[in-house]
């Protein structure tokens, strides 16, 4: 049962990543693209965790934690740049 569930989740997250990439391409605003990137990193983090589950190993955990942290910092930096970078200057 779990095998089927994990396969299903692989499919679902792959489709979700496709949706996100589509939003990343069509925009239309810069903030939309930042939001799409944010969602992409969260989804790929989940894919990494699923891969760890599939191979029955916990060694992907550190990578997932690092993606979570760096992705958050990246989103905040991009949003800050959008807020400050081209408005006040």
């Amino acid at each position: 049962m779990l095998e089927f569930a994990v396969q299903f989740a692989f499919g679902a997250f792959g489709l979700a990543l496709l949706f996100n990439v589509w939003r990343l391409i069509i925009g239309p605003e810069t903030a939309d693209r930042i939001l799409a990137l944010d969602t992409i990193y969260i989804n790929s983090l989940a894919l990494l965790l699923l891969l760890g589950l599939w191979h029955d190993t916990t060694s992907y955990f550190e990578a997932a934690l690092l993606i979570a942290m760096l992705g958050f910092i990246g989103t905040v930096a991009a949003a800050k740049f959008l807020l400050r970078g081209d408005i006040i200057e």
Binding site: F8, A9, A12, F13, L15, A16, L17, F19, N20, W22, R23, L35, A36, T39, I42, N43, A46
Partner: peptide, 12 residues
């Protein structure tokens, strides 16, 4: 997986 899929679909 379903929630994440719906969330990404909503983003689209």
């Amino acid at each position: 997986a379903l929630f994440a899929l719906i969330g990404s679909f909503g983003l689209l």
